[in-house]
Design a protein around this nucleic acid. Sequence first.
RNA 1: GCCCCUGUGGCUCAGUGGAUAGAGCAACUGCCUUCUAAGCAGUGGGUCGGGGGUUCGAUUCCCUCCAGGGGCGCCA
Length: 555
Amino acid sequence: MIRDDVAKLVHKAIKKAQKRGDLPKFEVPEIPIERPKQVEHGDFATPVCLQLARLARMAPMRIAEIITKRLPKADYLGSVGVAKPGYINFSLSEGWLARQVDAILDVGERYGNIDLGQQLKVQVEFVSSNPTGPLHVGSGRNAVIGDALAHVLAAAGYDVQREYYVNDAGTQMRLFAETLYARYAQALDRDEPMPESGYQGAYMVEMGQRAAREHGTQFLDVEREQALEALTEVGLGYTMEVIREDLALMGVHFDRWFSERTLYEDGTFARVLTLLREGDHIVERDGAVWFTATDLGADKDEVVIRSSGAPGYFASDIAYHYDKFIRRGFDWVIDVWGADHQGHVPRMKAMMQALGLDPQRLSIIMYQLVTWRRGGEVVRLSRRTGDIVTLREVLEDVGADAVRFFLLSRAAESQMDFDLDLAKEQSSENPVYYVQYAHARICSILRLAEARGLATGQGDVTLLTHPLELAMIRRMLMLPEVIELAATSLAPHHLAPYAQELASQFHVFYRDCRVVSSDPADRELTLARMKLIRAAKTVLAKTLHLMGMTVPERM
RNA sequence: GCCCCUGUGGCUCAGUGGAUAGAGCAACUGCCUUCUAAGCAGUGGGUCGGGGGUUCGAUUCCCUCCAGGGGCGCCA
């Protein structure tokens, strides 16, 4: 990354100046390199001299001049200047910039990738919504953040696995089966009451009817317990099918669907319980078995086995993470959770310690809940009460790309409002189309060029000297920095403004710079510009892919 | 009461320990006889919630107050 190369140059220059006695001896700090807001200040700038003033007991401007004088040569550097309070500003060489077009085309869709992760095994576990019905809009933000983050981490050089944790055990599953049993029986004209606080949604009625259609009365002819067991499987099949489809509509695919139940069936839970007991992290109180998280800094203990003998939800979580880290060997695990689970975080960290794992290896992304509105009115979502806005209905109304872009443009920790009515009305105004349009426009130009028999792959990029051509290249070269930022801060939303800026840079170029010229004298420039827009197409497509969006060739 | 997150133009939100704080939408004004006007150019609009502090420098870090969201179960 050029930014880091510039930092190294400055570091070397300081060392050299110290050796020559231009600067006093002091420990050289890390060199901050910024992207100046004003274009006049160049491509990169460092305020390091302002920091050094105290260490060196010299005026920042003086230090800046000394460093500049000692700066090693580099082919990518154009001009270097010293500015006002003590900045050093760097501009990239225009010839070098132009040559980057070929460099980008050479690596193609791998352009922008960095090796930050060094192929460390990382798992991103997200969505993991209970398999008791279709996904509701609330899961949308989770899906989009998790998926984009997985893309970003892969681009940053991690070996990424996407996982959906299927909560197919426990209280909710039981309640789901009981509800399905009631709806199924009712579909067969049997008078069967709904369980108390069962799932009220209409989709349960449909599922009951489907079960009746596909399985007839066979579950009425057996004992209730047996029927519930069988219907759990049937219902799980139905909901997981729907959930997979919902996610596919958004372009989200998982590498693995992990069944919670297997943790109890294959002895993982028993093993972990033994482990915790041996580590003295378990205590019995009020007839229940507790994990003493408070001994490890958490605010409260957590029930592992309830007095009823049934395991609590935390029990699965411990066993699940044991499986992730110890059995499957992930170096790093990222769980994506809604803010309503935040209280759980300290106990998860305590769990890591209890398992003898470095808590740093578990990251939890908390995203704030979206306030869903309909024409200004707040919509409360609850599967239990049947008051549900499904993700699918929103995707169909607004469009997957528009929903994704909207949910991905905001930092996870920002609360956001989503007005379903407004979104539908304004979906054509969504910035995603601005970005996609740039891509489609490029494709259109390339189609014209092809029709005129112009060969791609030829062209001398050093002919690219127009300020708008160079500005576009400069923007393309920022992608690795954006990927690094998004990966290190676990914040894929940084991709959104970048995509818009790049698209904007192209649209401006398009206005002033004709690519396919009819004048034979412009042939060489046409070929060079074709390379340029092909590179821009590559970078736009890459960015859209990272965000999990489609890349249209026509609009 | 305690804990977590947030408070930036009319609206929805980016942004950064540093050089004049940005975008989209909304409002207004221009621009299609050549590659897609889902575009471009321009105008108006901000005490970066209030107050203290740290710093050469704070919208950014710390404290405090105010406001909003979320959490404080043998639910998940």
